[in-house]
Amino acid sequence: MRLPSRRTALALGAAAFGGLALPARAQAKKNITIAIQFGTSHLATTVADKLALFARHAKDNGIGDTSFTVQRVSGSPAINDGIFSGTLDVGAYGPTALLAAWLKTRGSFDIRGIAACNEAVLTLYSNDASVKSVADIKPEMRIAVTATTAPQAILLRMAAEKAFGPGQASRFDKQMVVLPHPDATVALISKAAIQLYFAAPPFISTLEASGKCFKVVDGNAIIGRSYSGALLGATSKFAGANPAAVATIVAGLREAMDLIKSDPAQAAKLYMEVEKTALSPAEVEAAIRAQTFTVEPQGMMAFAGFMQRNGELKEAPAKWQDVFFEPVSKGQGS
């Protein structure tokens, strides 16, 4: 199956966000729906939901009669559709998707971030031991990413530019294959159609345990710093009408992150109660211990600068705070 080019994907993205009607005036909601995706990147939201932390902080913030429901969906299109239609109030975004949504919806839905969920641990793996760096990737090799505009794809472009010089960011674009994390994991281990895959936890643990896959490079080495993996975002209509709910979500995530740090075994148990995995409890716990969970956004400006320079973002924010609502915008992000 032929995949759309990066230029086509960007044009489609612009069309999806462009021409949106201005949202109607909002009122405070009593039932708030949060949509997340699969994987331990969203562990803090899972823990907060399972332990009723959102409900506890809602009471503290004077909105004890407000309920919070967490749904799991596959892919950002479903989240965007829900946010625009009003069936979802808060949705999970990667850093690159949030930047795109922020720019495309200014003056209409005005999507911005509520909080980060974690610092990413994205790592490029190969089932070919001869691939020691991105410079060893051959033209015939196929590279699995979750989307051609996802953080993994942007990191791959960063790595290409770093290895081959200016103007080479798109070097691997035609070699990208879009696959969900579970499918990419199976395909890489079985050597079915792909030779590389930009993986995320807990799928990294599965690749490592197979003994058939080899680390090429991780995202921190490419970008040169820590960076957010998942973030929660919403419209200004929602945030403006529900400031106590926004504060409740941030407080619930903070408490959940404290628990994850102090008791990763319990966090692993809670995760395995809601998501199917072939990993053992010990392996899930190890994947959790390898991550940092924080509400402070990281690396947003690094992504924005690269994306603007390479035509994937027409305009970068002047500062990371422009892309987030309070209280997180008053914090220590980057």
Score class of each variant (00 low, 15 high):
143 I>Q: 03
188 L>V: 06
334 S>I: 05
3 L>K: 09
126 S>N: 02
284 V>D: 02
24 A>F: 14
15 A>F: 09
252 G>H: 01
116 A>P: 07
204 I>H: 00
251 A>Y: 00
10 L>W: 14
122 L>S: 15
8 T>Q: 08
2 R>K: 15
4 P>S: 06
294 T>K: 09
122 L>V: 15
228 S>I: 01
306 F>N: 08
144 A>N: 07
104 K>V: 03
122 L>H: 15
84 F>L: 12
122 L>A: 15
43 L>K: 01
55 A>M: 13
75 G>C: 05
232 L>W: 10
55 A>W: 13
108 S>A: 11
90 V>H: 00
246 V>S: 01
143 I>V: 08
200 A>P: 10
70 V>N: 08
322 D>R: 12
197 Y>W: 11
318 A>T: 14
312 E>G: 15
229 G>S: 01
293 F>Y: 12
53 L>C: 04
300 M>E: 12
205 S>N: 09
234 A>H: 03
244 A>R: 06
305 G>E: 08
13 G>Y: 05
312 E>I: 15
96 T>V: 11
129 A>D: 12
65 D>H: 13
177 V>K: 04
290 A>E: 01
88 L>V: 00
232 L>S: 06
78 A>E: 09
151 P>W: 06
159 A>N: 00
194 I>F: 00
230 A>G: 13
219 G>F: 07
290 A>D: 08
36 I>A: 12
128 D>N: 13
10 L>E: 14
1 M>Q: 15
287 A>S: 03
135 A>R: 12
270 L>E: 01
228 S>H: 00
15 A>I: 09
208 E>P: 08
63 I>L: 00
38 F>E: 13
75 G>D: 02
157 R>P: 07
317 P>Y: 01
272 M>G: 12
249 I>K: 03
194 I>R: 04
251 A>I: 01
10 L>D: 10
61 N>F: 14
278 A>S: 11
302 A>C: 12
140 E>R: 12
122 L>R: 15
157 R>T: 06
324 F>T: 07
169 A>L: 07
309 R>S: 15
109 F>E: 01
93 Y>W: 11
288 I>P: 08
28 A>M: 13
310 N>W: 14
303 F>G: 01
78 A>I: 02
329 S>E: 14
145 V>I: 09
309 R>N: 14
7 R>W: 05
92 A>N: 03
318 A>F: 07
105 T>S: 05
101 A>Q: 00
1 M>H: 14
309 R>D: 15
235 T>F: 14
190 S>F: 09
278 A>H: 12
76 S>E: 10
73 V>F: 06
296 E>W: 05
99 L>C: 01
